[in-house]
């Protein structure tokens, strides 16, 4: 099948970029990234700079691949770009491929953006403080199956950033709330629950993401189907923490 591609090309962060037209002739069984591989091989043969894009596992789990395809993150199906197959496009179709757009995701080259803001939000509190070796026996912590399943649903987030890309406000609330909910739903996460909500939200704001207006685009486009209910839970935790958290006591540890 023949396709017309319009791909965002930009040599580095400071350069100005534009959409460039390409044509490819490919097999409909290919994945979207294999289609780009074919294009890149052709470009390299012609001595043109191949299109840079992030990708790694190509199994839909590492969250490295991105791409805003025909106006939607990860394209027309609810999946990651690496799991999107060309049979979902029509012969002769024009496909517009853009990078994730957000102030908090600065562009590095072509379709590659810097998503380290997500890591920094996690540094602010996306963990349970438990040193290696200090854990009790695993079955001493009983967790009802339903709670555990719900926590899992939140933990299934792959950190790809599609939620930010889809949101008209470039808000990261779905991503942040998924992490906060995952730990808030489990007994292990309780001791730091308030701190976590306050600190992660503060870092999210500091990174320059937009505010949530509950349009729900994030959840619709999320390749892992992370639910909007996470956002409600995060809001509740944040409000509760803001109203009730106590300042840390200054204590001397003694000599």
């Amino acid at each position: 099948m023949k396709l017309n591609l319009k791909i965002w090309r930009q040599s580095d962060a400071s350069a100005s970029g534009k959409l460039v037209d390409y044509k490819v002739d490919i097999n409909p069984e290919m994945s979207f990234l294999e289609m780009l591989d074919v294009l890149n091989e052709e470009l390299a043969r012609k001595g043109e700079d191949p299109v840079a894009f992030d990708h790694d596992c190509r199994e839909g789990i590492c969250g490295a691949c991105s791409l805003y395809i025909n106006g939607r993150p990860h394209g027309p199906m609810q999946t990651t770009t690496c799991q999107l197959h060309m049979r979902h496009f029509k012969d002769g179709e024009t496909i517009i491929i853009e990078p994730w757009r957000a102030a908090a995701f600065p562009l590095l080259k072509d379709l590659v953006v810097d998503r380290s803001a997500f890591d920094r939000i996690n540094h602010a509190g996306g963990f349970v403080s438990v040193n290696t070796g200090s854990a009790p026996d695993a079955n001493e912590i009983l967790i009802p199956k339903t709670e555990s399943d719900e926590a899992f649903n939140s933990a299934a987030c792959i950190g790809c950033g599609a939620c930010v890309a889809a949101c008209k406000n470039a808000s990261a609330m779905l991503f942040v709330s998924a992490k906060i909910s995952h730990l808030a739903l489990l007994p292990q996460g309780q001791p730091e629950r308030e701190r976590r909500a306050e600190n992660m939200v503060a870092q999210m704001d500091a990174e320059g993401f937009g505010a949530c207006t509950n349009t729900g685009a994030c959840s619709i486009e999320c390749p892992k189907g992370i639910s909007m209910s996470n956002i409600a839970l995060m809001n509740r935790d944040f409000i509760f923490a803001s109203l009730t958290s106590k300042p840390e006591l200054k204590v001397s540890e003694g000599a």
Binding site: T132, P136, P144, A155, Q188
Partner: peptide, 22 residues
């Protein structure tokens, strides 16, 4: 055996039975 303890303490959501055990 220690790995499972450590992972659970970190909040890894392993599959569970209705009784809450792993």
């Amino acid at each position: 055996v220690n790995i499972i303890d450590q992972a659970v303490a970190q909040g890894v959501p392993f599959a569970r039975e209705y009784g809450g055990t792993l």
